[in-house]
Design a protein around this nucleic acid. Sequence first.
DNA 1: TATTTAATGCAAGTCACTTGCATTATGTTT
DNA 2: AAACATAATGCAAGTGACTTGCATTAAATA
Lengths: 154, 154
Amino acid sequence: MEKEHRKESKKKLWDKARLSFEASSFRLTEPRKALLELILSAEGPFSVPKLLKSAKPGDKIQFDPVTVYRNLPVFEELKIIEKCDFSGDTTFYEVILDHKHDHHHHHVVCKECRRVDPLDFCIVQAQVTVLEKLGYTGLSHKLEFLGVCPQCSG
Amino acid sequence: MEKEHRKESKKKLWDKARLSFEASSFRLTEPRKALLELILSAEGPFSVPKLLKSAKPGDKIQFDPVTVYRNLPVFEELKIIEKCDFSGDTTFYEVILDHKHDHHHHHVVCKECRRVDPLDFCIVQAQVTVLEKLGYTGLSHKLEFLGVCPQCSG
DNA sequence: TATTTAATGCAAGTCACTTGCATTATGTTT
DNA sequence: AAACATAATGCAAGTGACTTGCATTAAATA
């Protein structure tokens, strides 16, 4: 039952997104609707290339890469999605309308298949142990802080 | 005095690097020597573009980007440098011959000037507090684990 | 010194992402 | 409802980091 509640129905997410748009000066256009649809059905974090590939099979709407690149930042501003910074050549985002993403969390990235799993907690070393118990091997982790340095804060 | 020992003399680092090369089948060629020189005098983490720019002023040796791109992985294999994964479009490395880099550590990246400072310790939340005391503002941090997932571990 | 083999450097290519600009869609005003 | 103003789209072309192919050159080996 807990599990059933974990992921809100897509309809509810849609409504939240629609509200965000209405509260803003951005227009919820057809391409944006289609993109939102695509994003809401994405499994875990997604990148532009990943989205474009997932949409390939003769969809009614053609996704222009440029439009996607231009709209993800819009969605981000509307707090529909959020960047999750894996290093690598592509930028990943994830939906944050869903309450399961409300809290601070991190990810495990598989070195081989690049599968990305979210973790719902955040304790560095203890977490490694847990991950090992879950079957992950060869684990390393990276932690970076981002902020404004004293010189620039000045 | 402690501080004096922090950074080994460049000569010692050179010797270590030379030894690594001799123990391997890689050749310590002129371009590699010049690149090594450049790297050993770099302040903190460096990227290929950064190196290329820093070498600009009519140096005796011309650095071909391709050679640099091809050699950093060689240096990495020889444990002379190591990737440090900031997200962003460019790959950063840092020298690990110097013993101050022997232990596990992270970095603070300035959102504005992209200045990168190393941290010699690793405690997540406590660290944020310390950084704030040091004058950093608007701090956020990111932590990612990298490993092989249960599926791929077989 | 000759030979083999690794390393270099130029040209060209890839891939994620951005920019410019004319066209189209949307929301607003009359 | 028609006309207007403006935001959004999509094509083409441009960046910038990095990679690849290949002929040339330099370094270790015979």
